[in-house]
């Protein structure tokens, strides 16, 4: 009997899907806590950013990664993952020096596309983590960056499979642009209460600061202005442009390289 087995890079069983979904929900709450937070009207104490989350999120990421690799990860997948992680880390380290050029997402999107959502998720985590280790960027922001990058990679893997050729490239470019803005927005959401500050009743405040207890819509408004003022115009757009350009120009060659790597690892074994 012959059973062809395609390189299922990081297979996602129903259980893994459930774990991923739950973890994503927790991640969303943790990122958007300023909008979720409901202050007890009677309380007068000051609202601090929940530093607890900085400890919790790594725990959640670790559980997800353990779940995804549960049952052992194929040595080939591991090698491919290692290579892409390393290349991503180098690209990020290189582009960190040149303002506006940000090349992490380009390979992350292509890798997720070729090797699937589970692989994309892990690649997002490992890429950002490796580049942080390389460029000494380990900090409280790192777990959140890993989470959002993981979503970007997973999303690329979930794009419809049927589309090929030029349409595929166009789709990937579009997704890349979207992912860049989304990443910027989400990371701003994380940094907003820290950077713009939290309004304390009766004390100082800046006008873009987060106001605990205010309606979510009002805070969202403040946040959107903050993000528009600080990053959307400059940094995020530059990143989206370079990513789109990189996918459009280098995409075909890199896709075929990645697919060759996926093909080499294809097995047909006969049982006799």
């Amino acid at each position: 009997m012959r059973r062809p087995a395609v390189l299922a890079a990081v297979p996602l069983r129903p259980r893994s899907v459930a774990v991923l979904a739950l973890a994503s929900v927790v991640g969303v709450i943790m990122l958007f806590w300023p909008l979720v937070l409901r202050v007890d009207p009677g309380a007068t104490e000051r609202v601090d950013p929940p530093f607890l989350f900085l400890v919790l999120l790594p725990l959640i990421l670790v559980v997800v990664l353990a779940e995804v690799s549960e049952g052992g990860m194929d040595a080939r997948v591991l090698a491919v993952l290692g290579v892409l992680t390393a290349v991503n880390a180098v690209l990020r380290a290189l582009s960190a020096g040149t303002a506006g050029v940000e090349l992490v997402f380009f390979l992350l999107v292509l890798g997720g596309r070729v090797f699937g959502p589970g692989f994309g998720y892990v690649l997002g985590c490992t890429s950002l983590f490796a580049s942080a280790l390389l460029t000494a960027g380990v900090g409280s922001w790192l777990p959140f960056q890993m989470l959002v990058a993981a979503w970007v990679g997973m999303g690329a893997g979930l794009l419809p499979r049927r589309i090929t050729g030029r349409a595929e490239l166009a789709m990937l470019v579009g997704y890349g642009v979207l992912a860049c803005y989304a990443y910027g927005l989400l990371m701003n959401m994380w940094g907003w209460p820290f950077i713009a500050g939290i309004q304390v009743p009766g004390q100082d405040s800046s006008e873009l600061a987060y106001v605990p207890g205010a309606p979510a819509a009002e805070n969202l408004h403040r946040f959107l202005i903050y993000t528009l003022l600080t990053s959307t115009g400059g940094w995020d757009t530059a990143r989206a442009l370079t990513t789109a350009l990189a996918i459009a120009l280098l995409g075909p060659a890199v896709l075929s390289t990645l697919r060759r790597a996926a093909r080499t690892a294809r097995v047909v074994r006969t049982d006799t």
Binding site: R2, R76, R263, T264, A265, R266, V267, V268, R269, T270
Partner: peptide, 8 residues
């Protein structure tokens, strides 16, 4: 054939 593909 694990790493090369093929039929054994």
């Amino acid at each position: 054939p694990t790493f090369t593909g093929g039929t054994l």
